[in-house]
Amino acid sequence: MIKDITIGQYIYKDSLVHRLDPRTKIIVSMLFMIGIFFIKDYYEYIYVLALTAISIYLSKIPVAKILKGLKPILPLIVLTIIMNAFFTSGEVIFQFLFFKLTIEGLALAAFMSTRIIFLIIFTSLLTLTTSPINLTHGIEGLLNPLKKLKVPAHEIAMMMSIALRFIPTLIDETDKIMKAQKARGADFESGNIIKKTKSLIPVLIPLFISAFTRADELAMAMEARGYRGDEGRTRFREQRLQLNDYLILLFFLVLTIFVGIRSVVF
């Protein structure tokens, strides 16, 4: 049960977007984030909508899955709407104590929440179409130029991939420890939040101890298999940018620059 949860939200499909280099997808997501902040008018969202729709269509990811990804950020959207709607000065249409609902506020609320929704939908395509391990490879690739500035790019990526690898193992172990403690009469379900949190201590302590043992043994196993950091290392399935990657990067770069310049000039 507990170990069946999926890490990340990667959905395997054979699509153009899936085949893109993770680095391309990360950069495009960033460009999109920058670009969307230059948008000033509602009608311009039509273009954003078109761009997002085409991307989703090309990724073959079911729209329902993407909309499901919006659920966790619903509180954020609601908060944005409330803050903007009630705290923008303008023509008051409704007043309750010091909360003033204004027309300008409503407009701004709609504008802001649309922006957030597009932002989330588009960037979630990145995690939906890239497996966690490819994502770490992509991050390593992008951090690589920073190695000259002593940024430990390889080490960061290695830590991330080991963390990903051990999540299911540790969940499994948590499950086991909880069962063992339940068998000894531990109660995890009743009581208020404080009591519930406290009851987790007998689970967390054994979990931490075993995690340290694991880390120790893993380090030794890595050394035994000849691991000595980045030095002299080759890569399994080296990623190379394809024509598609270059085209898409170019497209988004030009688009972002265009949107940026336009918003400054006009």
Partner: peptide, 21 residues
Amino acid sequence: DNQFIGGTIEEDIAFGLENIG
């Protein structure tokens, strides 16, 4: 469990090969 470095078997086998170049 504590000597499995890769996310899948092939990645784990590749880990050693990557190390020795």
